[in-house]
C-alpha cells in the first residue's frame, strides 16, 4: 500500500458516498445517469467475486463490501425509491455498445483464460468507459449540478492517483499490470473534459 493508492481509494469512496448522500438528501436523482450506476455496480460485482475465494486484508475486504453495497444502494434509489425523479429521456446512452465490445475484448486480451480472470479483465475495461452514459447525459441536458461535478472530480481523481500508484509500484516493487494501466489511462483521459 502506498500513499497514492490510499488517497485514490479514499477519493473513490468519497465519490461513491457523495453521490449516494446527494440522492438520499435531495430525494432526487435528477441529472444522474442510472445507466452509469448500473455499469459501476456491474464493475464491482465482476471484479470483487474474489471476496468469496481469497482474503487479502481487512481493509481490502471492507472496502470491497462498501463499494458493492453503496453502488447497489445507489441503483436501488435511482430505479426504485426515487424512480419518479429519474430522467430517463436524457439517460439514453446505448450501454450495449459498451458492454458487448468490452466483453469481447476481455475474452481476447487478458492475463489468464480463467473465468475469474476474464471477469476481472471485463471489469477493468468496463470501468474505463462506465462514466460515458453520465457524460453523455450531461452533454444532452447541457448542465451538471455542482454536486455532480464534485462526484465526477473525485471519480476522475481516483484513477489518476492509481496511475501514480502503478508508477510507484513499478519503480519500488517491479510490479505492473499493463491491462489495468492502459484502461486506467483511458479512464483518466475520459474524465479530463
Amino acid at each position: 500500500m502506498n500513499v497514492f493508492r490510499l488517497t485514490g481509494d479514499l477519493s473513490h469512496l468519497a465519490a461513491i458516498i457523495i453521490l449516494l448522500l446527494k440522492i438520499w438528501k435531495t430525494r432526487s436523482c435528477a441529472g444522474i445517469s442510472g445507466k452509469s450506476q448500473i455499469l459501476f455496480a456491474l464493475v464491482f460485482t465482476t471484479r470483487y467475486l474474489d471476496l468469496l475465494t481469497s482474503f487479502i486484508s481487512l481493509y481490502n475486504t471492507s472496502m470491497k463490501v462498501i463499494y458493492i453495497g453503496c453502488s447497489y444502494a445507489t441503483v436501488y434509489l435511482i430505479y426504485m425509491k426515487f424512480r419518479a425523479t429519474y430522467d430517463g429521456n436524457h439517460d439514453s446512452f446505448r450501454v450495449e455498445f459498451l458492454v458487448v465490445p468490452v466483453g469481447g475484448l476481455a475474452v481476447l486480451i487478458n492475463h489468464d483464460f480463467s473465468p475469474l480472470e476474464i471477469l476481472w479483465t471485463f471489469s477493468i475495461y468496463l470501468e474505463s468507459v462506465a462514466i460515458l452514459p453520465q457524460l453523455f447525459m450531461i452533454s444532452k441536458t447541457g448542465e451538471a449540478e455542482t454536486i455532480t461535478t464534485h462526484y465526477l472530480f473525485c471519480l476522475g481523481l481516483y484513477r489518476a492517483l492509481y496511475l501514480f500508484n502503478w508508477i510507484w509500484r513499478y519503480y519500488f516493487e517491479g510490479f505492473f499490470d499493463m491491462i489495468a494501466i492502459v484502461a486506467g489511462v483511458v479512464q483518466t483521459v475520459l474524465y479530463c473534459d
Binding site: 493508492r5 473513490h12 481469497s54 487479502i56 481490502n60 472496502m63 470491497k64 492509481y162
Partner: peptide
C-alpha cells in the same frame, strides 16, 4: 505470473 493474478488492488 501468479503475482499478477493476486489482485491486491481495489
Amino acid at each position: 505470473e501468479d503475482d499478477a493474478n493476486l489482485k491486491d488492488e481495489l
